[in-house]
């Protein structure tokens, strides 16, 4: 059951979160080994469980800048299977494009994963169930959510590291917009915009909190993201079991200040750790991989000084 049972009022003495930054110069290295080694450090309870990988697939882009790269998706699937997961499915509900098969073909996902009619679920078209949201940051109160997400034992958010022209950045929490079914709410899922993008991210994240996050920052996007920005080679995967800490670390890698992104700041009160002092870094230090991102004028306030 992917619905979160994470306490909304966390204990004051909660331990620091661990976030791994792993260097990867390109998509043709042994990413499965890199991810597998990292997952072992987190001792994830996935043996015998169903794992749902939720990449960020937005629209047909054969250049692999907009979407989570299929090499990372395939490597994550292999890694979770190696850890003993009973089943690993890839699932996404693109928010900007109805033709999901067109997106999958453009990025040649089948070349990486094999037959997609068995291993991929289009969350826009899946059966749905009404779910009461656990928080009231927005006026949404409830949403219909896909059966595949609600039925998964373990949810992995796999965003592309990108700037976002409405939300500032899009990472593992914003990536959850893709679990909201387009068949109910449209393309784009405009109800989330009307309810307030930042507050909708919070309500979704408290209700369907990812159990793990893997951010594809090997080639990221800066500027006018999430679609029309420019490629940014950062050469990292950022991973961890606290999605707030993973996003905050990714934001620092991007040269931005996480506490100035309001949904992340609020998420830091209920969902995970935002402060650098409360995040134990594994692998590379932020300072060694930090690559300042260009942002739109409207988001200059996010730049770390």
């Amino acid at each position: 059951m992917a619905l979160s049972t994470h306490p909304l009022i966390p204990p004051s003495n909660r331990p620091p979160s661990r976030v791994a930054i792993r260097k990867a110069d390109g998509y043709d290295g042994d990413l499965a080994e890199l991810i597998h080694e990292t997952l072992l450090e987190f001792q994830l309870p996935v043996a015998g469980k169903s794992v749902l990988l939720k990449p960020n697939l937005v629209q047909a882009d054969p250049n692999y800048v907009i979407n989570t790269h299929p090499a990372v998706i395939a490597a994550a699937r292999e890694s979770f299977l190696r850890l003993g997961a009973a089943r690993v499915i890839v699932a996404e509900g693109p928010g900007n494009e109805r033709d999901t098969e067109g997106i999958l073909e453009a990025i040649r996902l089948r070349n990486w994963l094999g037959r997609l009619d068995e291993g991929f679920v289009d969350l826009n078209l899946d059966d749905v169930r009404r779910v009461e949201l656990r928080t009231r940051a927005s006026k949404l109160r409830q949403l219909f959510l896909p059966a595949a997400v609600l039925g998964a034992d373990f949810l992995v958010s796999m965003p592309k590291m990108k700037t976002h022209h409405w939300a500032g950045v899009t990472l593992s929490l914003k990536n959850l917009f893709g679990v909201v079914p387009g068949s109910c709410y449209g393309w784009p899922k405009n109800i989330l915009h009307w309810a307030g993008i930042e507050n909708s991210i919070l309500d979704l994240s408290t209700t369907v909190r990812p159990d793990f996050a893997i951010v594809d920052g090997i080639v990221a996007m800066e500027g006018n993201g999430p679609i029309q920005g420019t490629p940014k080679a950062v050469g990292v995967l950022v991973m961890g079991d606290d999605p707030v800490a993973v996003d905050a670390t990714s934001v620092r890698v991007m040269g931005l200040a996480p506490e100035r992104i309001s949904y992340l700041q609020k998420a830091g009160y209920v969902l995970g750790h935002l402060q650098e002092a409360k995040i134990q870094q594994i692998g590379e230090a932020v300072s060694r991989v930090q690559t300042p991102f260009m942002v739109l004028e409207q988001f200059r306030r996010l730049v770390e000084h």
Partner: peptide
């Protein structure tokens, strides 16, 4: 027309 009642007009609906 909008995808859902009371939200913005979009091309497809």
């Amino acid at each position: 027309w909008s995808w859902t009642t009371g939200t913005s007009s979009w091309v497809e609906p």
